[in-house]
Write a protein that binds this DNA or RNA. Structure first.
Lengths: 131, 131
DNA sequence: CTGTATCCTTAGGGATACTG
DNA sequence: CAGTATCCCTAAGGATACAG
């Protein structure tokens, strides 16, 4: 089942928000990107407790938008999805800066500050080689 | 009127999404950050056509979250809001990479690629000095 | 295990009128 | 101009049962 999205304007921020501007999509991306989750049931057991219908809906939308792909019940990030790594990294950095309770590991944030470019290249390569 | 937000987990991505994970908040940030909008009526006339009740709701939430502040009916970004510049820049870069129709100016994207760090520092300074 | 389907509640949102 | 208030509708979301 495909889930089309309506476009509000030609603004690049608006374009991105039309795709992942909600409370759940980026959590699924996070689980694929940083937690090596790949199956439906693995996504279900996140700390935020997504419900089954919402999960199915977002998986379909993300697949339709070309951020993730599915092969025999295993989900993975596409190139377009992997290219969100810098966005995710900056969000994590922002949260680490402005929330004392956030679970972002200190070494992670320090590493970003220290050598952000290398980190992104490295992580992207690591992700694109499957596993 | 203050608008509190419920927290879903201690994850930094989730923390950020709880604050600006919707279709409108980052558009208001965009208008403050890149379009020098500062008044209620200026926000209202965006291309995406936000309605009055939603605008009032998001302004209250963003103010409560400490991303924007209000002084005599003029809104501006706080330090916490200005610190979203790298996030916004990466979103714009991502959209420019994956959408042919996006309105992101070529020079803007090239400039990011060429010297991202300088760009951010410069823009942040420009924003923090008011105007 | 991977989803669908259903029921129900709440939140988001559009339109428009109205107030200080 | 800067919002509030109201009406009304749709989308989002939680719970849970069910199917392949």
């Amino acid at each position: 089942m495909t889930k089309r999205i309506k476009r509000r304007s030609d603004c690049p921020i608006s374009f991105a928000l039309d795709i992942f501007g909600d409370k759940w999509s980026l959590l699924i991306i996070r689980d694929l990107m940083f937690k090596e989750k790949r199956t439906y049931s693995e996504f279900l057991i996140s700390e935020e407790k997504i419900s089954t219908n919402i999960l199915a809906d977002r998986l379909a939308k993300l697949e339709d938008a070309g951020l993730i792909s599915k092969f025999r019940c295993l989900y993975s990030l596409t190139e377009k999805g992997i290219d969100l790594v810098p966005v995710m990294v900056e969000i994590i950095r922002w949260s680490a800066n402005h929330d004392k309770k956030t679970g972002a590991p200190k070494e992670f944030v320090d590493r970003i500050k220290h050598d952000r470019e290398n980190f992104i290249a490295e992580l992207t390569m690591c992700l694109s080689t499957g596993r």
